[in-house]
C-alpha cells in the first residue's frame, strides 16, 4: 500500500543526492559580513529619489540627503532617525540597519499640499538563509519517505 505511493527508489536517491549538493553549495547571504552602503537621497515635492532601496541586515548605511525645492525632512520609521534638510545645504546621516523588515521613510517637514503622501521605503533583508533552509527541509522530507518505505518493506 505504502510502496505504491512512493516514487521508485532510484528516483528518490537521485533527488536526495541533488538536494544534499544544493544544501552544500547554496551560499549563505553575501552580506553576512556587513557591507557599507553610500547613497544620495534627493527630496523634492513630493517624492524621494530613490523611492525604495534595499540593504542587508547589519549593513551600515550612509545617506547624503539633498532637498531640491523647499525644505524637507527625512524621518525613518522603526529607526526613529530624523533629519531636516534645507535646499542647497545637504546633510549626511548614517546608521546601522540592525532591524530587518520594511520601513517607511517620510517627509518630516510640511512641504506642501501632498506632503502626507511623500513617502519611500527601505527594505532591510534578513540574513536568514531561506533557500538553504528550504533545501534542508527537502532532504529531511525525502529521508523520512525513504525510511518509511523501508519500514513498509519489512512489515
Amino acid at each position: 500500500m505504502m510502496r505504491r505511493l512512493l516514487p521508485k527508489r532510484g528516483v528518490l536517491a537521485t533527488m536526495f543526492a541533488m538536494l544534499l549538493i544544493a544544501v552544500w553549495f547554496i551560499q549563505l547571504p553575501a552580506s553576512a559580513a556587513s557591507t557599507a552602503h553610500t547613497l544620495t537621497l534627493d527630496m523634492r515635492q513630493f517624492e524621494f529619489t530613490p523611492g525604495r532601496f534595499e540593504v542587508q541586515q547589519g549593513d551600515t548605511v550612509t545617506i547624503l540627503l539633498t532637498a531640491s525645492d523647499v525644505v524637507h525632512g527625512f524621518y525613518l520609521d522603526g529607526y526613529g532617525i530624523e533629519q531636516r534638510v534645507e535646499p542647497g545645504i545637504s546633510q549626511q546621516i548614517s546608521f546601522t540597519a540592525d532591524q530587518a523588515g520594511k520601513f517607511r521613510y517620510r517627509c518630516a517637514v510640511s512641504c506642501g499640499t501632498l506632503h502626507p503622501f511623500m513617502i519611500g521605503e527601505l527594505v532591510v533583508n534578513t540574513n536568514f538563509p531561506f533557500w538553504r533552509a528550504l533545501a534542508m527541509l527537502g532532504v529531511s522530507l525525502i529521508g523520512s519517505l525513504v525510511y518509511l518505505s523501508f519500514g513498509a518493506k519489512q512489515s
Partner: peptide
C-alpha cells in the same frame, strides 16, 4: 552663500545647484 547662492551656483560653487 549656502542659504542664498547655493541653489543655483551649487553648494561648492560648481554652478550645479538644483
Amino acid at each position: 552663500y549656502a542659504q542664498n547662492c547655493a541653489s543655483c551656483h551649487g553648494e561648492t560653487g560648481g554652478g550645479d545647484g538644483f
